[in-house]
Nucleic acid binder design. Structure first.
Length: 549
DNA sequence: AAGCCCTACCCTACAAAACC
DNA sequence: GGTTTTGTAGGGTAGGGCTT
């Protein structure tokens, strides 16, 4: 029996529409309980319990593995490089905080709905507090540098006056001692350096050569000076760095973020990859099974790190107290929510800034002052412009699951964030699916008349009916109607074995089929369609006889 | 094999728009 | 003006594909 392969395509691409909802695998009661638990306060408790009983083990396992890898990676880096990276990271973070403050305090956010995103003092205070924290972090990095540089054997060097003469001096004829012009008061054998220092690379008169440590320290200070307009020099000890900030009263540092988070490996900064040990001076806890403490801010201004895996995700510790509602809400998911809202505020600022020009006719400045503080921190709302939505719909009608390139092009074309475009498609797919399901059920009883009354056949037609309401296949309507009954049986057999929604697979199949068909026929899509129709009709005629009693 | 990325599917929150 | 609907977004779980 011949069944045209395109028939499989016709059904398989919309297999998704026929699937049972996920909860069909749960009992109804479980599902109800589960869905009711979600999104409520009690649901958070529920998730907490759930995690305790179900999730903790695998998560910890994962976390441990991740930590292992990171640790292994970190061990390859020397202390100086790590301190340098940490400082770079801290500077970057400071820049971000400063940008946020600048963005919020700018005059640009006074358009439509803008009163909602006007920063309250708490926000600014929190950001400034973060900056203070980073400054202290830099101070601590330099402190660590100082303490490390006093640890001579780390670098396999020949220290003047120490009596620890390196044996390599005899081993290599061209192995002079070179003095570092930095503050470490150290001397090195050329061959002891890594990489070994060639004689040609030594500056004339041995002046201006710095060991790796001093070079790093210099770079750190230069970066800080360049960024903050400070004048720290190599002669400054760590106590001189951000002396004023460190001298602030304890409560000034602790008032807003008593347990403020420390940037972690997962913080998104590739330059930063902190090593737990480097904070040993301020470490408050050490490698336990589940988490590695990098230390915290200590009262003397030393800085440590947060939970290893959780920098950002560390529960309930990154938000100022004013945001911390309850212990429950600080745990896990809600934490994530809050963080996301924070970042969302920032991204929305950009969007609103762009729409500012358009919406500048509304003056709400006078209203701002009258609004209660809680109203001012309400989530800002962005609407995709109507024209953009129309364009998105057009693309959606052609392809529900556009490729990344298509989405990026769209985002450029429409001036929208690519995430917004993705989100729009995500929602559109979900809504379309819901609509299709609803409509499919409605249409079940008004199907094509004159078809055999066979339970299996009726089932198939129900499914086909759903297919007909799927966007993007309207052009296949007539093809579907002409598919032979027996072919449909076969199609549905294959379909029922399938998964719920595999649009991705389906679209792949679709493109494969298109290619195959075009290759086979060697003509355009219209011709291909006509050929498909012809084949369907032929098959239908062939198999009508099969079904007849 | 594990990790990462992306997606589906679902629920929910919230603000704007539409409706009564 | 109050209520309902719509649109955008956050977030959770699960699974597949690809890379390392």
């Amino acid at each position: 029996m011949y069944i045209p392969s395109h028939c499989f395509y016709l059904v398989s691409i919309h297999r998704s529409s026929l699937s049972l909802p996920l909860f069909s695998f749960l009992s109804w009661g479980e599902y109800l309980l589960d869905s009711r638990m979600r999104g409520t306060k009690s649901s958070k408790k529920h998730s907490l319990l759930k995690c305790q009983y179900e999730k903790i083990e695998p998560n910890n396992e994962k976390r441990r593995r991740r930590q292992k890898r990171k640790k292994a990676r970190n061990e390859e880096l020397d202390e100086a490089s790590r301190l340098q990276r940490r400082t770079r990271y801290l500077l970057n973070q400071m820049k971000l905080e400063q940008n946020l403050i600048d963005a919020y305090s700018g005059e640009g956010w006074k358009g439509q709905s803008r009163e909602r995103i006007k920063p309250e003092n708490d926000f600014k205070g929190a950001r400034e507090n973060q900056i203070l924290k980073y400054k202290l972090g830099i101070r601590d990095a330099i402190r660590q540098w100082d303490s490390l540089s006093s640890c001579r054997d780390v670098l396999h060097l020949y220290e003047l006056g120490s009596g620890n003469l390196c044996k390599l001096r005899e081993a290599f004829p061209d192995n002079d001692i070179i003095l570092c012009d930095g503050t470490c008061n150290s001397a090195f054998h050329q061959k002891c350096l890594d990489p070994p220092l060639d004689t040609e690379s030594i500056p004339p008169g041995d002046q201006g050569w710095f060991c790796r440590f001093c070079e790093c320290r210099m770079e750190i200070l230069e970066a800080v000076n360049a960024h903050l307009g400070t004048y720290f020099s190599m002669n400054n000890s760590w106590e001189d760095v951000f002396e004023e900030e460190a001298a602030l009263p304890e409560d000034a540092n602790a008032s807003l973020h008593p347990d403020v988070e420390w940037p972690s490996d997962d913080s998104g900064d590739e330059n930063y990859d902190p090593e737990r040990k480097e904070n040993s001076s301020s470490i408050s806890g050490e490698d336990t099974d589940d988490h590695v403490w990098e230390g915290e801010f200590s009262t003397d201004g030393s800085v440590g790190s947060d939970e290893s895996d959780g920098g950002i995700e560390m529960f309930g510790k990154d938000a100022p107290p004013c945001e911390q509602i309850s212990e429950d809400e600080d745990w896990g998911p809600s934490k994530r929510k809050r963080r996301a809202k924070e970042s969302d505020a920032a991204s929305t600022l950009m969007t609103l800034f762009e729409s500012e020009k358009v919406n500048s006719d509304v003056d709400v400045e006078e209203v701002e002052g009258q609004l209660p503080p809680e109203a001012q921190i309400r989530r800002s709302f962005f609407r995709i412009p109507r024209i953009a939505v129309e364009r998105l719909r057009e693309v959606f009608a052609e392809n529900e699951l556009p490729s990344r390139d298509v989405k990026e092009n769209l985002s450029k074309e429409l001036g929208l964030d690519s995430e917004k475009v993705s989100k729009w498609f995500k929602n559109a797919r979900y809504l379309a699916l819901k609509t299709r399901k609803a409509e499919g059920v409605k249409q079940v009883h008004t199907l094509t008349p004159g078809l055999p009354k066979h339970p299996r056949f009726e089932n198939m037609m129900k499914k086909l009916q759903i297919l007909l309401y799927s966007p993007g296949i309207a052009e296949h309507h007539r093809l579907v109607s002409s598919v032979s009954s027996s072919a449909c049986y076969a199609l549905l057999e294959s379909m029922e074995l399938g998964d719920d929604v595999k649009l991705k697979k389906c679209s792949k199949e679709r493109s494969k089929m298109r290619k195959r068909f075009n290759l086979f026929a060697g003509f355009g899509s219209e011709d291909a369609e006509a050929e498909m129709e012809r084949l369907c009709k032929v098959t239908e005629l062939e198999h009508r006889g099969d079904l007849a009693p």
